[in-house]
């Protein structure tokens, strides 16, 4: 049983055999009768599910109380992985398409290991971030009819000081967990900029942008607004994690102060930022899903 859970986890890129084996020891078996719910949208989350046998139909609810099928999953698939990154409620219904069994990686146990800096847990979180980023990329690709024209050179001034960075970030949720050593490590890992409205930020290698003031916006080539990020937000997180640009523009929407992080810093600071990154990825994915639901609802209305 444990070995098979490890095999399912091994499908995630970047997860070593050792990490898979360690995590598989945490998995507990589950069985759900045909037609029963493994979980419902908005349920509190209890962990990541790995399917050994049977099928699962994943559906989302829509305005007007409709349902839209999002995926059909079979043996070897995983579902409910968002919760390991943000601890949030379920974002879809998962119904057993026949008797379904497999393993559940418990959220509370996983969170404890992650808090303790367990290497296997951190590796799984990193692998899940890549998976969620890929899913966001696919969704944006589906929403964007055409890729935008390439951006010109950034031309941003490096004018935001480390002290200013610290003073701003300390006021935002999540960053209040940072220690003086974290502030120093973060300041050394990137550069502060001011950027005027309209400036594009998606040139070159994807960068993680921390919004200190003002706002940035993801927009498709045909001007469909995907996401708006305000102060405290991590913008460009999915492209940053995937290492591949989105088929969309990242624009400064309001005159902004930004902190650009080209790569996560090492050590504890990097781990703290990575946790925030995981939550940001899930939050953005949920928002993109609602954009798609809105477009669908308006098209059919």
């Amino acid at each position: 049983m444990g070995l098979q859970a490890g095999e399912a986890l091994a499908q995630l890129d970047g997860l070593s055999a050792q990490a898979c084996a360690a995590l598989a020891q945490l998995a507990v078996p589950f069985t759900v009768a045909s037609g029963a719910a493994i979980f419902r949208q908005h349920d509190p989350s209890d962990g990541l599910y790995l399917i050994e046998s049977g099928a699962v139909v994943v559906t989302g609810r829509t305005p007007g109380d409709g349902h839209v099928e999002l995926a059909r999953l079979g043996p070897g698939a995983m579902l409910g992985e968002f919760c390991l990154l943000d601890g949030g409620r379920r974002s879809a219904d998962a119904l057993a398409g026949g008797e379904c069994s497999g393993w559940r990686l418990d959220l509370a146990r996983f969170a404890g290991l992650q808090d303790a800096g367990d290497a296997a847990a951190l590796a799984l979180a990193a692998a899940l971030r890549v998976q969620v980023a890929a899913r966001s990329h696919d969704l944006v690709s589906a929403l964007a009819a055409t890729a935008p024209e390439p951006a010109e050179a950034l031309g941003l001034g490096m004018v935001v000081s480390a002290d200013h960075l610290t003073a701003r970030l300390q006021t935002f949720p999540g960053f209040d967990q940072f220690s003086p050593a974290d502030w120093a490590a973060l300041a050394a890992a990137g550069h502060g900029h001011v950027a005027p409205r309209g400036r594009r930020l998606d040139r070159g290698a994807p960068t993680l942008w921390i919004v200190l003031r003002g706002a940035v916006q993801w927009q498709t080539a045909d001007a469909l607004q995907l996401l708006v990020h305000g102060p405290g937000a991590l913008a460009g997180s999915a492209a940053f994690v995937a290492g591949a640009p989105w088929p969309a523009r990242l624009l400064v929407r309001e005159d902004a102060e930004l902190f650009a992080v080209p790569a996560l810093p090492d050590g504890a600071t990097g781990q703290k930022l990575a946790r925030m990154l995981g939550s940001a990825l899930v939050r953005d994915q949920r928002r993109l899903t609602r954009v798609r639901a809105r477009l669908s609802a308006m098209a059919l209305a």
């Binding site: 305005p63 708006v228 928002r287 609602r290 639901a293």
Partner: peptide, 11 residues
């Protein structure tokens, strides 16, 4: 439960 609600876009 916000499952059947969607957002008016910013701006």
């Amino acid at each position: 439960d916000v499952s059947t609600w969607v957002e008016v876009p910013e701006y």
